[in-house]
């Protein structure tokens, strides 16, 4: 593994690392709120991947000015800008669901919910 590859792909790898951290939180933790946070980490890592793709070395933000300037790619910025706002909207739906589950079952731990469900089924 040479240094050039490390430098040119470091961003991708950290993005993948963060994505996997979010994924791991999502599948290994039982608490629903923690799961939502894991989803958020995952989501942000995808945002970073897109922005990373749009960056050009020595580029500037895509706001047009006089003269010859290299601009970074504006397209990923647009996509991610809207994705962030949609992300917070869906997160709030997820949290609202968690709140309703808490009210219905008295807990947001997946294991306990499963136990309660099993108890209901066994009891008739």
């Amino acid at each position: 593994m040479n240094i050039g590859l490390l430098v040119s792909h470091y961003n991708y790898w950290v993005v993948i690392f963060l994505m996997m951290v979010g994924f791991y939180i999502l599948i290994s933790r039982g608490n629903l709120i923690k799961k939502v946070i894991g989803l958020n980490v995952f989501q942000t890592s995808v945002f970073m991947l897109y922005i990373t793709l749009g960056k050009i070395t020595a580029g500037t933000p895509p706001i047009l000015t006089e003269g010859e300037v290299v601009y970074s790619n504006p397209l990923p910025h647009v996509l991610i800008l809207t994705a962030i706002v949609v992300g917070i909207a869906t997160t709030s739906v997820a949290l609202a669901l968690a709140i309703r589950i808490k009210e219905a079952y008295g807990t947001v731990e997946e294991d306990e919910i499963n136990r309660i469900e099993a108890g209901i089924e066994a009891g008739g």
């Binding site: 922005i51 580029g59 910025h77 706002v85 917070i88 997160t91």
Partner: peptide, 22 residues
């Protein structure tokens, strides 16, 4: 990474509103 618009949104949404909601 030159995405100033995105950074703006992320700072306002992620550090502001979503923390309050959580």
């Amino acid at each position: 990474m030159d995405a100033v618009d995105v950074a703006f949104t992320e700072a306002a949404v992620g550090a502001g509103i979503s923390t309050v909601l959580f």
